[in-house]
């Protein structure tokens, strides 16, 4: 366990020493949320809807970029190969990255919650706040799996490009910026295949906003997607060997 803690410590230290990399993924969701919920807001339900979806958006950034670009870079430099043959189990390396990602996701979420609660006057019961936080922070897991696969499959430059495309697509088609129900029908169909859409629906259900599907359906879909992504990541990992 000491090894895992040290791995996590190293990941955190790495991020802190290169703030220009992690800072945008922490600040952008918060800035977007402030912009859309405070400046462009024109109906009362809007800020609650945006809180649920922008929380997913906030967890997505550190997960996709942290994993995708981080692993690609380390793989390019041969660090990953070193890790794979080192005495510490290889999954410590992944687990440490995941824990760090979730810590950063939490850092990205807090300012959004504070803006929602104290500037947009959103009130939620204690259990609603906690379950919303639980959904948001867990959203990092499927996105981390996506990032992991990308990092294992692409070179650094390729990973930067592809991560950005995937990140923006998941945000837009998942309805994280603009509600999916305003999309044209083909876009709505596409939305169903993104984890972001189902995570957003799940987040909305925790704040008592009704979604298109039941939370159970959303949860099952997410689980299925996560299993598929895990399979993809394992395949990419073994291919890299």
């Amino acid at each position: 366990m000491m090894a895992l803690k040290n791995e996590i410590g190293a990941e955190i230290l790495k991020a802190i020493r290169a703030p220009e990399f992690i800072a945008p993924t922490l600040l952008m969701p918060c800035a977007f949320y402030a912009l859309f919920s405070l400046v462009f807001n024109n109906s009362t339900n809007n800020s609650l809807y945006l809180l649920a979806t922008y929380g997913v958006f906030a967890a997505m950034g550190p997960a996709i970029f942290g994993f995708g670009i981080g692993i690609a870079t380390e793989r390019d430099r041969g660090w990953l190969q070193l890790k794979q043959i080192a005495p510490t189990p290889a999954y410590y390396y992944i687990a440490a990255k995941l824990v760090t990602t979730m810590l950063f996701a939490a850092c990205a979420l807090m300012p959004i919650y504070l803006i929602a609660g104290f500037a947009s006057d959103i009130t939620l019961t204690q259990s609603n706040w906690v379950s919303l936080f639980a959904v948001h922070i867990s959203s990092a897991i499927p996105f981390a799996l996506i990032g992991l696969s990308l990092g294992l499959m692409f070179s650094t430059n390729g990973a930067i490009a592809v991560s950005n495309i995937i990140f923006l697509s998941l945000a837009i088609f998942g309805g994280l910026w603009v509600p999916a129900f305003v999309f044209s029908s083909w876009m709505q169909t596409l939305a169903l295949f993104t984890p972001s859409y189902h995570l957003a629906e799940l987040a909305l259900s925790t704040v008592n906003a009704t979604g298109e599907y039941t939370p159970i359906t959303n949860l099952l879909t997410i689980t299925m997607m996560s299993i598929l992504l895990t399979v993809l990541a394992i395949w990419a990992w073994s291919k890299g060997h």
Partner: peptide
């Protein structure tokens, strides 16, 4: 921090 924020958020 997360705990404190979750506690002070308006209910």
């Amino acid at each position: 921090t997360a705990l404190i924020v979750l506690l002070i958020l308006p209910k």
